[in-house]
Design a binder for these strands. Sequence first.
DNA 1: GGTCATATGACAGTGACTGCCACATTTGCT
DNA 2: AGCAAATGTGGCAGTCACTGTCATATGACC
Lengths: 211, 211
Amino acid sequence: MGLRETKMERTRRFIAESAFDLFVEQGYDATTIEQIAAAAEVGTRTLYRYYATKEALVVSFVENGLDAAMAAFLAQPDETPLSEALYAVVDSVEQTIGANSARLLALYDIFDKTTGLRAGLADLCWSWRQRLAEEILRRQGGTGDVLHAALTAASTMNVVEVVVQTWTANAGGVEVADIIRETLELLRTKAIPFPTPAGWRRRVSSARRAP
Amino acid sequence: MGLRETKMERTRRFIAESAFDLFVEQGYDATTIEQIAAAAEVGTRTLYRYYATKEALVVSFVENGLDAAMAAFLAQPDETPLSEALYAVVDSVEQTIGANSARLLALYDIFDKTTGLRAGLADLCWSWRQRLAEEILRRQGGTGDVLHAALTAASTMNVVEVVVQTWTANAGGVEVADIIRETLELLRTKAIPFPTPAGWRRRVSSARRAP
DNA sequence: GGTCATATGACAGTGACTGCCACATTTGCT
DNA sequence: AGCAAATGTGGCAGTCACTGTCATATGACC
């Protein structure tokens, strides 16, 4: 790697770091781009070449975590059952949280103190879910059902979101591993009720008793 | 209802209407707030009292649909099985789409032509999911599992999102009712694989074979 | 060491959004 | 009807995120 790229990587990190510190210290809204640029010792125009928006400065941290999770999923060989490959995602999230718990708590504190920041996070989850759906479909060799892939991706993402949310709601006082175990246990033992039109209930339940 | 409120309601509607027309005509980004205010015959300052942000002008349409869906859910008596009450949500969405299909297609066209608008939509879905989870929990008399309620809400929302997305992806060429039927059929017949650690596979599958 | 590519930063400008204040309209009371 | 309080309206000035442009500086390659 050339000197140039090394330097840029360092500035990139330094900018996010400075921004994060300022956000923690005086809040997201109260912090201007100019202040961040000054703290990071770059011009505002340069800052914008590294991070397209102010939001991106915060979201990038979560983005890194999700990228790691996606990588963990893609690293699974195609022979592994899908459910295990999906577990790699959850596992990666656990590791990420475990490795940066203090930082992440501060991060999520910024998130819910600032209405409007959540939108960026929600959007990130959304596009990530899209990508996961595509990967699941590709993994099944294109023979799979698009709808089914979308639902699978969405439901995995739900697990991640619920886990993270539960963890932050408890201010990190509960082990992530425990939350994950509990959530997956719940999914295994207690069916999630899905929408069912009134008329079909009898037919369905009798069909289920009939093999 | 007083004269004042009637008038305000009308302006509110007129503003959104004018904004929508302009967005369709010349694109979201290319339309300024001043133009919208001019078209709606109000001052910009007044416009902001009705819609807090430019984004809200677009999102409000979806918000109305989701509000109707929530109302449909809340209208279900507590005795109805949860799965049927959740169906009321899906059903409401179907009705909304059926009643405004042309308008909604134009709306979603704006959404995916404009990067950054999606965030508002994603956030709306997110907060709506939260509300649904709370209502599910309350419906079960507080005895229910928070995690389970969250997962149920999320998975219902997934159905809605997948249905709407499939419908817009087909540019309205497929009946919403068919998409819904197919999606629910899929959920009924084909289990969604959830994350499972590698070691547990045998134990689980053998447990399942042992009634 | 010279040259080319590319990163930087300053400047001016646009547009979303806000606080403030004077003005107009509705409402409620007599 | 008429007055007063409450509340909606709109203009103006100002802040701040963000962008296009261009001169300058700096690492990369020969």
